[in-house]
Design a binder for these strands. Sequence first.
DNA 1: TTAGTTGCAAAGGCTTTGCACGCGC
DNA 2: GCGCGTGCAAAGCCTTTGCAACTAA
Lengths: 138, 138
Amino acid sequence: MSNLLERLRGRGWRMTAQRRVVAEVLDGEHIHLTADEVLARASARLPEISRATVYNTLGELVSLGEVMELPGDGRAKRYDPNAHRPHHHLVCSGCGAIRDVHPDGDPLAALPAAERFGFSVSAAEVTYRGLCPVCAAP
Amino acid sequence: MSNLLERLRGRGWRMTAQRRVVAEVLDGEHIHLTADEVLARASARLPEISRATVYNTLGELVSLGEVMELPGDGRAKRYDPNAHRPHHHLVCSGCGAIRDVHPDGDPLAALPAAERFGFSVSAAEVTYRGLCPVCAAP
DNA sequence: TTAGTTGCAAAGGCTTTGCACGCGC
DNA sequence: GCGCGTGCAAAGCCTTTGCAACTAA
């Protein structure tokens, strides 16, 4: 499995220092950063990067289908680089930690025709909620 | 099944003209309005209602557990009055229409222990995506 | 009466935009 | 060199807040 940076290069994505840093910061498993967090981490490596560029780059990665946009519990959206592999999310109601999960079976199968209102249903996103081991501790 | 207004009265909720109008506007099936839409509809019946009051009232209905807050596709949250009956959502990727749906079985059962990362998982929210009959038409 | 609710206006957080400069190809 | 990408600052959208006046119970 190639990493985010390699995939982008392979697509002929115009590479700049700023874009490289944003892609590096997002690459990995269980990464779900807000734009602000991306900016903070990117600034650590490239202090002159601007907020607008972070937003531009994130928006572009989303349109390219390389990064997934998550609603986020508060007001800020979160960005998930695992768009190339379908998955769902497990969110801790205590601390907000997010893990990528892969449930058994196809969630679409659970929706009977009578509940589809004539829609052609093509995808399902599942958010599981619970308490992480730390927050569940007595 | 009693309606929203009756349930609120039964809970001893302090009733005002503004609160009544907000509750009336939200009552029903497949209702998923933004705060702005609630304000618009409420204003039609009670022109002097203010935006702040709509937000206050919506926030309170959410804490009471009578209304559910949905992330919403764009930036504005949506408010769903069917919090008393668990359900999921089917969203049209074309026009944004939202329907309440009730899938078969328990979505939690699909998440194996190995995918729970030690969390105590207590709920699942599912968003189905597809095209409504109008948007799917050739 | 009196605690809770309202309206107004201002502030706040997150995101987008306009424009001139700069840099990858 | 050309055209896209960047940075800055300002504006935008949605939401929250402070405070004085008001009102349901």
